[in-house]
């Protein structure tokens, strides 16, 4: 009896292991492209980019720990990016003092275009150019505009692709605002 029981258990274990292997294979190949993607709850990958206007200022994500980060990826050719920028600028003015930082990361365009664009819109928030597309690759950005909300603990709170209106931007900034002491 003992021997039979043992055999049943062995068989059960082998079957479970083999079935688990199949399930894992199917699952991970179904989500193959998505697995590597940045996901909500992930630790936001650290990076460092040079400020558009002052090459001495380096925007390093880990330096902003304790603050909420509103990380926006954009390009001058992207119409929705352009539309949401003034709203971002307005809300940044409100939430800046409450511990929310904005960083607008341009995708590998020339300094002239970026400056021209930003100045033309008259928006005010830190801007940096991702010249080698390294940060964009790290954050697996595919479509523009893309906004990554990073909470004060350094985790990804939300990923937004597509245009945001001012109301949404305000509520997003509210959601990553550090708690007041």
């Amino acid at each position: 009896m003992d021997k039979k029981k043992k055999r049943s258990i062995t068989r059960g274990v082998i079957l479970v292991v083999l079935l688990a292997a199949i399930v894992y294979t199917v699952y991970s190949s179904a989500t193959k492209d998505k697995v590597k993607l940045l996901q909500v709850g992930d630790k936001a990958p650290d990076f460092e980019l040079v400020d558009l206007y002052d090459s001495n200022i380096k925007h390093r994500l880990s330096d902003y720990e304790g603050k909420g980060i509103f990380l926006n990826f954009w390009g001058t050719w992207c119409e929705p990016c352009k539309k949401e920028m003034p709203a971002m600028s307005n809300q940044y003015a409100i939430y800046k003092d409450q511990g929310v930082e904005v960083l607008a990361v341009n995708i590998a365009q020339t300094e002239f275009e970026v400056k021209n664009f930003i100045e033309g819109l008259g928006v005010h928030f830190p801007v940096a150019i991702d010249e080698t597309r390294d940060v964009m690759t790290e954050y697996t950005i595919d479509l523009l505009p893309a906004t990554i909300l990073i909470n004060p603990e350094g985790e990804v709170e939300k990923i937004i692709t597509g245009e945001m209106n001012e109301q949404q931007i305000a509520s997003y900034m509210e959601s990553i605002k550090p708690e007041q002491e």
Binding site: I14, L15, L18, L19, A21, I22, T25, V26, S29
Partner: peptide
């Protein structure tokens, strides 16, 4: 993939 997996199980067992 499931079919191949089942074949794999069949071979092993």
């Amino acid at each position: 993939q499931i079919l191949v997996g089942l074949l794999g199980i069949s071979i092993i067992i």
